[in-house]
Amino acid sequence: MRNMFADAPRASLTAAYWAFILYLLLPLTLMMAMSFKGANYIAFPIGEWTFDWYVQVMQDKQFLDACLYSIMIAAATTVAATTLGTWIAMLIVAEGIRGQVVIFAIACLPAVVPGMISAISLRIFISTIDMPTGTMAIILGHTVHAVPFVVVMALTRLRTMPGNLVDAARDLGADSVVAFFRVTLPYLWPALFGGMIFCVLLSIDDFVRTFFLGGYRPTLPMLIFAKVQGGMSPEINAMATLVLVVTAAVGLYAEYMTRRARTR
């Protein structure tokens, strides 16, 4: 009898967990299921099932172009944000530099400022430096957004690094540049890999910055937003499902890789 009472909180917690999982997965599952609906409006029950929407989406030039554009922006953002984030992290952990707390706070600022405000301030900023809206502005905005996350991830890893590794390299004749590339960077790599995947997902996902900084060429979220505003059909579901499957695969792969790096 006592055992049953002791287990009651445990059972309800388990139930809460699975209910939450259901809550998380149900809308996405419904969204994916709807992409197979054989009619051009969104409504349950699905009735007739079809694959036509996927065929249509795969031939949709606008969609493919948006994919390409999003990937390009994500790649540029990732390279820029990883480089800058690592550099800033190196500055923060460097010996003999004062004001590290201030530098860290400034580095994290874009992660704390709400997305909308960050987007507007960047829109104003690019106009004051006479930069036109468009690809470069989007990449700049996404990079500003992604840098804090790289900084934090790199810092976490740098803190666990034995200080004598770099000293050893220096003793063996490496100057600080070589020591960074041969010792620190390889040590940082697992964290940077995770950070890079995070940058890609952040950039592909970002709507509000792209909305304010973008030109006429839509990125994926812009395209989906425009379609949702312009009248919904299962075509959007097919697009969203494709994007979802790809990004989830990237996320899972990253998770797998970081876990493997951790256990090795």
């Binding site: 809308p27 349950f44 709507f207 989906i224 937003f225």
Partner: peptide, 23 residues
């Protein structure tokens, strides 16, 4: 897992659940 779907896709999927002819 659900968070690898973007902000917009997750928002859109809520429509499937709550629309007048939603689930």
């Amino acid at each position: 897992v659900p968070f690898w779907a973007g902000e917009l896709i997750r928002t859109f999927s809520v429509i499937m659940l709550l629309a007048n002819r939603g689930a």
